[in-house]
């Protein structure tokens, strides 16, 4: 009897505490904040400087994916012929079957070009069976900027100030 009363007291205390700071979030209407390192579905990054993806379809991530859920095709880069880009080859189609992706982050780890990142996207329900196959869904389409990109931008913003005296024509132009 006494212990039951004690239990009720504890419940009451934590209820009162709970009233002061509610932990429940109205999830679909109020989005849940995620941590900076959160691994959502992978997405390709976009090189703003030459307006093309970083990905060269080198297939490293595709071979390393534990669930074999990605595929890509490569093509000659038309922008390279025009002299705008230094990439000889570029990704033509890139598909991630998000039904099979387990959000492990291995593809990001193995990519040598930082061309793929784990986005914060985790709500991709669609109405069709194959609706969640990620076609060429580039980072550009989402408004989330990957931390690697932010770091690069910060670096690029810091560098020209030092370089300005010596070499004004720095190739690594910062791009906001």
């Amino acid at each position: 009897m006494l212990s039951s009363l004690k239990g009720m007291l504890i419940t009451l205390v934590s209820t009162v505490k709970g009233l002061r700071a509610p932990v429940t979030r109205q999830y679909p209407s109020v989005p849940t904040p995620v941590q900076p390192r959160y691994m959502g579905f992978p997405a390709l990054t976009w090189d703003e400087k030459v307006d093309e993806p970083y990905c060269t379809a080198c297939m490293v991530c595709i071979r390393n994916c534990p669930t074999l859920c990605m595929s890509a095709t490569m093509m000659d880069n038309p922008l390279q012929k025009e002299g705008k880009s230094s990439r000889k080859k570029i990704v033509e189609t890139f598909e991630i079957n998000l039904n099979r992706c387990i959000l492990c982050g291995i593809c990001v780890e193995v990519c040598n070009f930082d061309a793929i990142v784990m986005s914060h996207e985790h709500e991709l329900s669609t109405y069709e069976r194959n609706g969640d196959r990620l076609g060429q869904r580039y980072q550009k389409e989402t408004d989330w900027i990957p931390p690697t990109e932010l770091a690069k931008q910060a670096k690029a913003a810091a560098q020209p100030r030092e370089q300005k005296e010596g070499a004004p024509a720095a190739s690594g132009e910062p791009k906001a």
Binding site: V34, Q35, P36, R37, Y38, M39, I102, L103, C104, G105, I106, E109, M118
Partner: peptide, 27 residues
């Protein structure tokens, strides 16, 4: 689990330890 998410990027399936260490340093 929120702390795990901040450290490894996932709440449950972390894939954070590696042979010979861990994936990346703590945040």
């Amino acid at each position: 689990q929120s702390v795990f998410e901040a450290i490894s990027g996932a709440r449950m399936m972390h894939n954070y330890f590696r042979v010979g260490g861990i994936k990346e340093d703590l945040p």
